[in-house]
Design a protein around this nucleic acid. Structure first.
Length: 423
RNA sequence: GUGGGUGUAGCUCAAGGGUAGAGCGCCUGACUGUGGCUCAGGAGGCUGCGGGUUCGAGACCCGUCACUCACCCCA
């Protein structure tokens, strides 16, 4: 006996029972993104490692300890993509897409990889739906992107969701604020948790994000970044006004600090209290500096990414459409069995979802199977029916049966199922 | 990387150191050509794995692996 091989830790199969949910969510993503003028792009699953180091930032957790990195045969370091923006921006630069107004709004759907310890809502392979709107510094672009994000969640009727926004300012503003914040924190350093004391050295903004009660108390009265905005203050005001104008509910969260280095100015995050500790279902922000970092011409941009596993885990039943009505063919007997197989093919050629059982077992078993498969109708076709050129059409909900000619059965069914009767 | 919880039938879970069980699901029959309900019967287990304590371990101890939740971090 060989030992059983299991899927890799933190990497999940998506089984047939779950797939309709994925289709609904991905369908909404495609439909709404196109509706907002975004076009799909598909980029590679893996890239040169350097791409992610430069874009995400060398001191972030993602780059330091979460990437799936391996050497190609010639020794080149490659990495499975931990997020989508870096690859999209690389493709935009490589193909000059920023020069064409028709390719400045892009979206993608696909798997990302991070070597983290799995937990509720966190996986080593997970799927993201993301959009990137490049070439515009206008606050209207920010509003458009956030509006799409909000509409996506609203359309899916996700429960208890909250939108929070903040502005990180432009690099000089943030630099100035960091100094102010550090001075404030230095006086209270002994009250901070060990983690935050370390954060003060390499990323003081993250102290604001700490969940430890004592740290929160310390930062409660800390100076707020928003008060230190100068060049980007008006932009942020316009974004807020734009959201209010469209009736998109948000709250201001000056502690909202995104983890990736490339964010600047507007940042936002949508959470759901229906999830566990990993409650962010979508987040994003502006990243005006990224193109230059990746060797492109300076280009403003804003985007978001949505965690599809998390969305699907809280997707309400009400968002699910009724499944296709199924016709089950119960054929048996020396004549009925071959005739039923021809009928099966004829039904399918008319686009009717049809299924049968090839064992030719008893009618009782066939009907039970039809029931288990959730059939709306069962066609009974035994030797008697076959010789008379007829079939019995049984409505599985009402148990009504009627006799119809064998050769007109496909048309009758195709016609009747145009208006599916729900269970 | 750190900490907690849990590993027993396909699934959900019982079994105070003394014969491994239930519910659901599956198969068969009652009903030889009519599903769901009911009733009767049946199949299905190296109790995650390896050691130890004991007359005796699913249970207790040690190790290990897996799953899971949380920290960290993030979508």
């Amino acid at each position: 006996m060989f030992t059983m091989i299991r899927a890799i830790k933190g990497i999940k199969d998506i089984l047939p029972d779950q797939l309709p949910r994925w289709n609904v969510v991905e369908g909404a993503a495609h439909r709404l993104a196109r509706c907002y003028g975004f076009r799909e792009i598909r980029i590679p699953i893996f890239e040169i490692t350097e791409l992610y180091i430069r874009s995400i930032g060398g001191t972030t957790d993602i780059v330091e300890k979460e990437m799936y990195t391996f050497n190609d045969r010639d020794g080149t370091s490659l990495t499975l993509r931990p997020e989508g923006t870096a690859g999209v921006v690389r493709a935009i630069i490589e193909h000059g897409l920023a020069n064409n107004p028709a390719t400045r709004k892009l979206y993608y759907i696909g798997p990302m990889f991070r070597h983290e310890r799995p937990q509720a809502g966190r996986f080593r392979q997970f799927n993201q739906f993301g959009v990137e709107f490049i070439g515009s510094t206008s606050p209207k672009a920010d509003v458009e992107v956030i509006s799409l994000l909000w509409r996506f969640f609203s359309t899916l009727a996700l429960p208890s969701i909250t939108l929070e926004i903040n502005s990180l300012g432009q690099p000089p503003e943030r630099q100035r604020y960091k100094a102010v914040l550090l001075t404030y924190l230095q006086g209270k350093i002994d009250r901070l948790c060990g983690n935050c004391q370390r954060r003060m050295e390499f990323n003081p903004l993250r102290v604001l994000d700490c969940k430890v009660m004592e740290c929160r108390a310390v930062t409660e009265s800390a100076p707020s970044l928003i008060d230190y905005l100068s060049t980007s203050a008006q932009h942020f005001k316009d974004v807020r006004a734009g959201l209010e104008d469209l009736g998109i509910p948000y709250s201001l969260n000056s502690r909202l600090v995104r983890g990736l280095d490339y964010y600047s100015m507007t940042t936002f995050e949508v959470t759901s209290s229906s999830l566990g500790a990993q409650n962010t279902i979508g987040a994003g922000g502006r990243y005006d500096g990224l193109f230059e970092v990746l060797g492109g011409k300076s280009t403003p941009a804003i985007g978001f990414a949505v965690g599809l596993e998390r969305v699907i885990s809280i997707l309400p039943e009400s968002a699910m459409p009724l499944p296709n009505p199924l016709v089950f063919i119960a054929g048996f007997g020396n004549r009925g069995l071959p005739a039923s197989f021809r009928l099966l093919e004829a039904l399918r050629s008319k686009g009717v979802t049809a299924e049968t059982d090839h064992y030719g077992s008893s009618l009782k078993n066939l009907l039970r199977l039809a029931d288990r498969l959730g059939a709306s109708f069962t066609i009974i076709l035994g030797d008697e029916e076959c010789m008379q050129g007829q079939v019995l059409l049984r409505n599985m909900y009402t148990k009504e049966q009627e006799t119809i000619p064998l050769n007109s059965a496909p048309d009758v069914l195709a016609n009747r199922l145009k208006t599916p009767n729900s269970p």
